[in-house]
Amino acid sequence: MADTTLETPAVIPHRRKIRWGTVGDHAVLILGSLLMILPPLLALTTASHDAVTIHREGLQLTLGDDLGKNFHAAMFEKGGFTQTVDGMLMLMNSFILGVGFAVGKIVISMMAAYAIVYFRLRFATLAFWIIFTTLLLPLEVRILPSYEAIQKLGLTNTYTGLIVPLIASATGTFFFRQFFMSVPEELAEAARIDGAGPWKFFVDILVPLSQTMIAAIFIIMFVFGWNQYLWPTLITTDESFFTLVRGIKQIVLSYTDSQIPEHGQALALAIVAMIPPVVIVVFFQNWFVKGLTESDK
C-alpha cells in the first residue's frame, strides 16, 4: 500500500471556462430549430385571429381570441372550402388513407418478403426482380396511366382506388427482406426441429420478432399515406372522399380568393392536417428514425 497515497493532494479544481466553441454550436442549433419551428407556430398563432385581421395584416405573432371559434368552424361546419363536408369527415378520410395504406402495405409486403426469403422456390429470383423493379418508378412518373387504369376499373372515388395503387411498390417488401435476412439461420432450423411448419414459424416466431420493425414501418407508411396529395387529387373528385391534405388545394384556392375570406378557418384546417403525423413522429421518434435509416441501407 506504500504507493497508494490517498491523503489530500495539491488540488487543482477543474477550471470552469466558457467554451466559445460550444456556445457557437448551440447558437447554430437554436437558429436551426427556430427555422423549423417558426413557420408552423406562426400559422397556429395566426389561426387564432379573425378573418379580417389576417386578411389585412397577415401572419400574427400573438395569440388572438378566435382560436376555438376557427377550429370549431373548420371541423364541424360544412361549407367554406368544400360545400358538402366538414373537417371531421376529412380527418376521418385521412385516417382511413393513412392506416389503410400502412396496414395493407405491411401485411402484403411481409408475406411477400417471407415467401422470398424462406422458401426454396424456382421462381423466387424472378418474383424478387418483378417486385423490386417497382422501386425504380415512383407513382408520380406513371401517374397518368395509373389514373387511366383506375378509371377503367371503375375505382375512382372509392377507398380501394385511393389506397391500393399506392401499395404497388416494393419499399416495404425490400425492408422486410433485409430484416428477415438478418435473422439468424439457426432460428428456422430450431423451429423445424421443434416441429413448427412454415406457417407456424411465420406467425409464432417471425412476426413477434419483427414487432419493432413493424412499428417503425407503420409510422413511416402512415405519414407517407396521410401526406399523399397528387394521387388523392386525381382519384377523389367527390368531396366526401377528400382527405385533409387533398383539401389543402381547396384551402389554398379559398385563401387566394378574396370572395371567401375565412382565413382563420383555412389555417385551422391546415394545422389539423399537420397534427396527427407530427404527433406520431415526435412520440415514436426512436422507432421512426431507426426504421428510416435502416430501411434505406
Binding site: D3, T4, T5, L6, T8, P9, A10, V11
Partner: peptide, 20 residues
C-alpha cells in the same frame, strides 16, 4: 499523477483521488 480524480457530469465517481 498527483491527486487525479474523475467525476462525470452525472455525479458518477469513475476514479477516486489517485496518485502515482
Amino acid at each position: 499523477l498527483e491527486g487525479i480524480r474523475k467525476v462525470y457530469p452525472n455525479g458518477y465517481n469513475a476514479v477516486e483521488t489517485t496518485s502515482f
